[in-house]
Amino acid sequence: MIRAFLKRVFLVDLFEGLRVTFRNQKPKYIYTEQYPAQRPKVAERYRGAPRLNLNPETGEPLCIGCNLCALACPESLIVMTSIRDEKTKRKTMNTFLFDTSRCMFCGLCEEACPSDALELTQDFELATYTREGQIWDRKMMEEGPKPTRYKC
């Protein structure tokens, strides 16, 4: 009884909490990111900006124009056309439109791609000044976004 009373008077419970606060004065885990100066390293499997991969040896697009990514997309935001190459008798991708403003980066298009052409990369800076800039065409898909690098 007296013990409890003294604990109340001397604010023991509040000091117990303060002890935790002071124990954390030199924190071991710090997650603050100095963002524009230091870019965070995202995980290897990060699902970011989409990219159409090119064959590293020939520079030709890996895409075979099968349209599977467009069918897999829940938002139907991929629109592509393909033409038949008269010489090789194979289908090749002609135009490719990817609306990143509606994309939720679920990765289903990447999983549907049979030739590893479409890939969600580790680029995460997708902001643009216009709404139309969010719709990426084939050239943009192959080159990837070019975010501004600031000197800090």
């Binding site: 995980a43 499997r45 990060y46 699902r47 980066f105």
Partner: peptide, 8 residues
């Protein structure tokens, strides 16, 4: 851990 496992 989630980001390393599934990318988001």
């Amino acid at each position: 851990i989630f980001e390393n496992y599934c990318g988001a």
